[in-house]
């Protein structure tokens, strides 16, 4: 198991202003699988991911990444966890504008003070297809290329889990497809574990499994989804939500 949430509650604020973002979420993310988390706005999908990644604390319940209990770790422990076990891909790419593509890819390793594994690096660069762009700065790359650099950055340190937050949200459909295809290959060929938050059914269909959140609870799950099955489930959920459930 790459990541696990046990009865996770997340409550923001208190008293009148209290908002319950997660209500007793139980979820497991197997190794070498590509899981998508879907749900309408405010369903708690981003919160769940932030909690899983140790970026946000949980109010109750436990989170594990690999064998590490995330809940209860201090800042130093969380830092080490992020450094060694977790990779991120952001909607805004979040590349450092002053570094070249290659330097951006190597940044997590250099933060950790580790030497890159040459062979693996070659594989990653080959897979994302950026060999001739390594010396370019982010400003000289297209959106899709930037996001591929970000993917390579997440993969380079072979983390236990990669969390992707709307990775195609800022891309057109072609560039998005490239990035998603690449993510799927990294799962299939290199046994990477990926957890992706998205609200795009097409994006979700690249995953091997989709879990649906509504009102802070897991309400449904799909294995080997297609865009159509995802869309249907979404519609059903919207119907349920509108019906007041």
């Amino acid at each position: 198991m790459a990541a696990r949430a046990n009865d996770v509650w997340k409550v923001y604020g208190s008293g009148e202003a209290q908002v319950v973002a997660l209500r007793g979420v139980n979820a497991e993310f197997e190794r070498a699988r590509f899981t998508a988390i879907m749900g309408p706005s405010g369903s708690g999908k981003s919160t769940l991911m932030h909690c899983l990644a140790g970026l946000d604390s949980v109010t109750r319940g436990t989170i594990h990444i690999g064998d590490t209990a995330v809940t209860g770790l201090g800042d130093a422990g969380l830092t080490k966890l992020r450094r060694d076990k977790v990779g991120f891909i952001f909607q805004q790419f979040n590349l450092l504008p002053t570094l070249t593509a290659l330097e951006n890819i190597l940044l997590p390793l250099s933060i950790a003070g580790r030497k890159p594994d040459k062979e693996w690096l070659d594989v990653v660069i080959e897979t994302v297809g950026l060999r001739d762009r390594l010396g370019h700065r982010p400003a000289q790359l297209s959106g899709g290329q930037q996001q591929r650099v970000a993917c390579a950055r997440a993969l380079a340190s072979r983390p236990e889990v990669i969390f992707a937050d709307e990775p195609t949200g800022n891309l057109d459909s072609r560039a998005g497809a490239e990035v998603l295809g690449f993510l799927r290959r990294s799962v299939a060929e290199y046994q990477q574990t990926i957890v992706m938050v998205t609200h795009d059914p097409v994006a979700a269909s690249y995953a091997g499994r989709v879990i649906f959140l509504a009102d802070g609870q897991i309400v449904s799950e799909l294995i080997e989804p297609t865009p159509d099955t995802v869309l249907d489930t979404m519609k059903k959920l919207d119907g349920l939500t509108e019906a007041g459930l």
């Binding site: 970026l55 800042d75 130093a76 830092t79 080490k80 966890l81 992020r82 450094r83 060694d84 977790v86 991120f88 952001f90 805004q92 979040n94 450092l96 940044l107 997590p108 933060i111 950790a112 950055r153």
Partner: peptide, 16 residues
């Protein structure tokens, strides 16, 4: 802020 947060998200410690 965003850049520094990114470094933190990628595992940079406070001291770094």
């Amino acid at each position: 802020t965003r850049e520094l947060a990114l470094l933190r998200a990628m595992g940079a410690g406070r001291r770094q």
